[in-house]
Design a protein around this nucleic acid. Structure first.
Lengths: 327, 327
DNA sequence: TATGGCTCTGGTATCGCTAACATCGAACCT
DNA sequence: AGGTTCGATGTTAGCGATACCAGAGCCATA
């Protein structure tokens, strides 16, 4: 920076201003500085800048997994919105392991991010403690059951699952099974299970057809269907914790030659891109994953600007998308 | 840090050592420092540390897209391997836009990452210039046609596509179409197209059945199939630039009631998880996406340790996985 | 007992930038 | 003319760590 300043015939402070707040520098000087910087290939060192200003313009995102998940949408929303403001994303995957999450938060905090976006509202106690102490903007995403560390954006998984269950029941299915998520202890998935079972119970149907699965991904749909059929051979519909599992069920039906939606109705959760593509179309819950990311970004940005002492909680809702997999 | 030092009755320098190089501090002192740090909730400020040591322990990854892609595996391999060494990932998506890539590299360089992982070997000239000037470890991934900025890990897309094409031809298909990638200008996809066409040509078949598509994702398979059929109603096999498109073709076949592999043979590229799940199984090229990420991490780490002045180029190869979508 | 080599600890000088305040003309007002 | 305001620039003092060198004990060896 000193070299650039010398070459442009100004002080280092003016160079700094020419980059950070160009409006505060006269046009002539700004141009001289830009030319000097270009000639010398100068790239401002943000590490030093961050240290001096104690603002890093980095946001950390901590997600359970990227594979086959709606978190990608959230991440994309987040990073798109943040990039516009010159922020960057520090990413960590935790594999649904609370210990990993705690380690990730600890590691990331040392870099003094301006904000941290967490997935879910269920954390190791040390995570809560560290983040409270760090005085950093925190957004918990996807789940909406507090208490929250700071801010939150998501929707009610229970309400969504309840609505989906009611739709299945309303279509006349009577022996409805539910395929759980491999990490069934995660609150988000507990809520989904509860919502579905509540819908069955209120219709006087058996809410006991629940299959726990060990397999991740599509394979979970297959093994879940197997275990549901061993519980109830007359099973006529399946609701899955995620679309990926539901697609696995559809594939298994195709393999068995079972017509969907007549032999078996199928519903998923998440409305992944593939839900609209797979024949005969998968009925699912559309969640606003991208919107969650954008909203999280907005909350953090607004907090940076100093306004907003309160800690908002945003419900972005959901929508049931009806397709051919349900009669 | 000064507070911790005071509380532990040592100098700040010793606190620094207790964290960075515990072996150089006596056990008694180390424990006092750890206790003091815990009591005060001290989290070392890596920003300051980075500035002083001019090593950031951050690696930047620049990928075209995360959705429906094999880059996820690479990213995961990269981040898993790096996390073990205490490094973190700075992520940027560019949407297959070279201008965006240049902007991303410029933005990221200011944070002085210890390494940058790029996708492909085709970049805006400014990217090459910036990275050369920055003296940072660079790994170009996936593609293996130089010249490279620094190091590279990938495989030959042409050889893979050639092998896949030969397999299709070997199974007796005679009117073979190819569905291109939406961003057909990307070198990696040019190579795939060339490999397939070379296989067709050497078998004396028409290499002209190539469909360009505009749609991303599964929809591209559907529209690609449409346009191939309008070119050749007697089409008997389709090779796709990616598995996602191939799955789109399989879905369209199911919709039309066309038996696969008899009415139409289908082959994809990438061996995504779904390829093994979708009936009747998708024949595809298995690429070692995760391995590419791990190898890229290793290269950067080794470069950090000071060894390895040379700039290695690693070919991780590929493998054809034969499944039911080809007779 | 003197010497050299260890291991452990401390002091000092940066790393490259920005916050905060100081300065200086020029423009504007009464 | 004098005072006030404002915009553009410069000066100074850190931000919170680490690199580097120096010094203090301690042991083994001759």
């Amino acid at each position: 920076m000193a070299d650039v300043a010398r070459r442009a015939g100004v002080s280092p402070m003016t160079v700094s201003r020419a980059f950070k707040t160009p409006a505060t520098v006269s046009a002539a000087v700004r141009q001289r500085v830009e030319e000097a910087a270009a000639a010398l290939g100068y790239v401002p060192n943000l590490v030093a800048g961050n240290l001096a200003s104690s603002r890093s313009r980095m946001i950390a995102a901590v997600v359970p997994t990227l594979a086959n998940s709606n978190f990608l949408g959230t991440l994309k929303g987040l990073s798109d919105r943040l990039r516009q403001e010159g922020y960057q994303l520090l990413l960590t995957e935790t594999g649904y392991d609370p210990g990993e999450e705690a380690a990730a938060v600890a590691a990331v905090l040392g870099r003094r991010p301006d904000g941290i976006v967490l997935t879910g509202a269920q954390h190791h106690p040390s995570v809560t403690a560290m983040l409270r102490a760090a005085q950093v903007a925190v957004v918990e995403t996807w789940d909406l059951h507090g208490p929250f560390i700071d801010m939150a954006v998501g929707f009610s998984h229970r309400a969504a699952a309840l609505a989906l269950g009611r739709m299945v029941v309303g279509r006349g299915y009577r022996r409805v099974g539910y395929i759980d998520f491999p990490h069934a202890g995660v609150r988000r998935f507990q809520e989904r299970r509860r919502g579905v079972r509540a819908a069955l119970r209120e219709a006087g149907l058996d809410p006991g057809l629940v299959a726990g699965v060990a397999d991740e991904g599509y394979a979970g749909g297959r093994s879940g269907l197997d275990s549901l059929l061993s519980m109830a051979g007359d099973l006529d519909a399946v609701i899955c914790a995620t679309d990926v599992q539901a697609i696995g069920v559809l594939f298994e039906c195709a393999r068995r030659g079972w017509p969907v939606p007549d032999r078996l109705g199928v519903a998923g959760f998440g409305d992944y891109e593939i839900a609209a593509e797979v024949p005969p179309g998968l009925t699912s819950v559309r969640t606003n994953g991208r919107g969650i990311g954008v909203a999280a970004a907005e909350l953090i940005l607004r907090r940076q600007e100093g306004g907003m002492a309160a800690a908002p909680v945003l419900d972005l809702g959901f929508e049931i998308v009806s397709r051919g997999s349900l009669r």
